[in-house]
Design a protein around this nucleic acid. Sequence first.
DNA 1: ACCTGAACACCGTTCAAGT
DNA 2: ACCTGAACACCGTTCAAGT
Lengths: 239, 239
Amino acid sequence: MVKSAAGPGRPRSRDAAGLPAVTPEKIISSALELTARHGLDSWTLRQLASAVDAYPAVVYHHVGDREAVVAAVVERVIAMLPVPEADLPWREWFRALCTDLRTVLIGYPGVARRLALYGATSSAAAIVDGGVQALKAAGFGDEAPTVYQLVLNAACLFISVEDEKHRNTAEKERAGTGLAEFRDDQERPGLAAMAADVHRTLSDPVRCANYYADFYDYAIDRCLDGVACRLANLNPPSA
Amino acid sequence: MVKSAAGPGRPRSRDAAGLPAVTPEKIISSALELTARHGLDSWTLRQLASAVDAYPAVVYHHVGDREAVVAAVVERVIAMLPVPEADLPWREWFRALCTDLRTVLIGYPGVARRLALYGATSSAAAIVDGGVQALKAAGFGDEAPTVYQLVLNAACLFISVEDEKHRNTAEKERAGTGLAEFRDDQERPGLAAMAADVHRTLSDPVRCANYYADFYDYAIDRCLDGVACRLANLNPPSA
DNA sequence: ACCTGAACACCGTTCAAGT
DNA sequence: ACCTGAACACCGTTCAAGT
């Protein structure tokens, strides 16, 4: 860190200090790294600036405000998503996408929530096209866009819950132990069953480690099952 | 505002100023109001303090830090939720709950997300009990707790997207108009169908106003359909 | 054009001191 | 016990001034 070398001889420009010029590319890839490590909402613009050995105002000059940096990071992450093969049946197409979606987005906490809230940007055009085409081909007709939105929204939202697991683990464990007292509640068998189930998960390390992945798969499968029902209604077997 | 009446004769205690004592109850109900108006994440502790005519330190003294206030607000909102009738079939039970859930939570933006992330607290015990019992009675067996979690998580998450609609309306419209150019994309019929669908929604005021409510109902219904499939698998018709 | 360095108006939180 | 008033260590953003 040249900047911290104070004194009368301290260089007063990046040039004089022998530092490389700051570029938008460098800022955004630093932001991507910070997002991978801390999450999209947990790094500050000042952290980002010092990661590229610069002042906050430099980020503004090259990229823009925090929102602009975040949008650029999200674009980069979307670009990492593979597009499932075009000739897959709709269900396998979405299963493949959802699996890839999770493995990529989990690495960049906070991006999943952004995608769920603001929808896909134009950089996801190939994925939208492939998904809606697969649904059209399967017979979803005019409901294809809605079904696409439903499945992707659900996937991103469930991933976004996992994104915060580091933050809510303490809270969840507290809730889990708070629930424990109801395990033998004879008056409320439903609550007791829930408490027992939570306890079973918390006390098994393997089950605990796979909790989010398993729940995600279960959720996506139920979602696809539900959508498949719709397909049966739209194209009655009498035809 | 007595506090703003500066000068040598200004009273130096709430008592001397004729102000009522600050109570935890008053702080929390003020926070509830601020949440209804601005959302759980959009009021500051300093705003809350001045809403009860007090210094920030007073909130700390009576309730605790921001997190403690937020937890208290969430408890109050959960307490507003009605428990569906116990003798309803599982599907109607969850349909009723999800409908009530939305009407209540929409009024307190940010609470739905908290519920999805941290799970239900013990103040929701009656609802958990009723839901799991309804599922057990329907034949979901050991999967009842998982199914309960899935449906409630999905409901809260879809509501949490709507919670931020005021914030993402601008962004969404921008994405909508950005998508418009693909409406006649012959090369990518899936993308074109999506663009046309979005345009159809945005250009119809009625459809626009009901968008979130309709999408929520569609999502919950597909979710329940998917869960119902599971029921058929667990209890094969041969029995 | 690019960067420095300081400032502005916030934020949650803490704390000694008053009543 | 309850409240005052100021302070601390942050934050995103802006801007005149330097190179």
